[in-house]
Design a protein around this nucleic acid. Structure first.
Length: 354
DNA sequence: AATTCGGGGCA
DNA sequence: TGCCCAGAATT
């Protein structure tokens, strides 16, 4: 492989076709890191407004470190994979407390930060500091697989080893940040999953898959995971103008987010669920409610689950909120729901209240 | 080495 | 509905 020629052609193409993305306006390691964490498993156009809002709210890593985690989660709401937001805040605090407000400059140091793995560390090191660090993510994995004619599944251990080996070879000693971004951009705009635009590709002559007319079968996909059906209930318990909320604990999904009492249900439908619902609310919150009335059914799919969520309304009869350190429980006004970080379904339920 | 995280957007 | 997305952490 003639890497010098490949880089030259790629950079020429990138100079003409690079998108104007907000995180490309500066090489501030804080902004590079923030964008890279947001972009993990998340599309560019989805991230764009979130990035703008975060930078406006917290212009520096010190500002972010000083923020309340609840505020960070609230701003993250809707972006998904909420663990990233908690790791983001924890990493900001560590950068301030342990590194004097400066991000580590190499891959090894960056990888010690929570939420920063091999890819993100390589991206920050190369883009912010121009370190010769390789990267492999969704766009580059597909691009490298086609360039090298990789017949292993890209997600497999063997496939990943081959991709990272190629990434190390292609990354230059100087200008790594620009080249890495050009590689990702080519993957995103030209070397697309379906119908790659090989006639517009500046490095098609370097591409094994193009030579073999195999871009349709490379990259080799992993087998898809099986879907699990889940049935759950969420209960909006009211006490006058207030509604009952609990905060999800550290070991729980949605850790740090608030939610209406929510739990899996065995009963086949709303008609048979009353006893189970009252017990579930009391177990999670300590509050006893009357017979919940079925209000709505939300269906949504997430990762490997397909969920039917039955939403109920009920009124407090007795009991006191049982708040623990790990999982606080509180009454909030309907208006106060706007400040609490909620999951997407939690926000949908909240939107239906007044 | 595989699974999980229970996202969100799009055709 | 299935596929994709600038992956990381966990077992």
């Amino acid at each position: 492989m003639d890497f010098a020629s490949l880089r030259r052609r790629l950079l020429g193409w990138y100079a003409k076709h690079a998108r104007d993305l907000p995180w490309r306006q500066s090489r501030d390691p804080y902004r590079v890191w923030l964008s890279e964490v947001m972009l993990q498993q998340t599309q560019v156009e989805t991230v764009r407004p979130y990035f703008e809002r975060f930078v406006a709210a917290w212009p520096t890593v010190a500002d972010l470190a000083a923020a309340q985690e609840q505020h960070v989660l609230r701003q993250w709401e809707g972006l998904g994979y909420y663990r990233r937001a908690r790791n983001l805040h924890a990493a900001a605090k560590r950068v301030v407390d342990e590194h004097g407000g400066e991000f580590p400059r190499d891959v090894a140091g960056l990888t010690t930060l929570p939420g920063v793995g091999r890819y993100t560390a390589g991206a920050i090191a190369s883009i912010a500091y121009d370190a010769p660090a390789p990267i492999v993510e969704a766009n580059t994995a597909r691009l490298y697989a086609r360039l090298t004619g990789l017949r292993e599944p890209v997600a497999s251990t063997a496939g990943q080893r081959a991709l990272w080996a190629f990434a190390e070879q292609v990354v230059p000693r100087r200008g790594a940040g620009r080249l890495n971004q050009a590689l990702m951009e080519l993957g995103a705009l030209v070397c697309t999953p379906e119908s790659p635009k090989c006639d517009a590709c500046p490095i098609a002559t370097h591409c094994a898959a193009f030579a073999q007319q195999a871009t349709r079968v490379i990259p080799v996909a992993a087998k898809r995971q099986t879907i699990t059906e889940v049935r759950e209930a969420a209960v909006v318990v009211r006490r006058g103008a207030d509604v009952l909320l609990r905060q999800c604990g550290p070991g729980e999904r949605w850790a740090g987010l608030w939610d209406f009492p929510r739990f899996p249900v065995e009963a086949e439908g709303p008609l048979f669920a009353t006893r189970e619902l009252v017990a579930g609310v009391e177990r999670l919150t300590g509050v006893v409610c009357d017979s919940p009335r079925h209000h709505d059914t939300l269906r949504h799919a997430v990762t490997r689950f397909r969920i039917r969520l039955d939403c109920y309304h009920a009124t407090r009869l007795g009991g006191r909120v049982r708040s623990t350190q790990e999982s606080p429980v509180k009454w909030v006004t309907v208006a106060g729901l706007a400040e609490a970080p909620l999951s997407v379904t939690g926000r949908k339920i909240a939107a239906g209240l007044r």
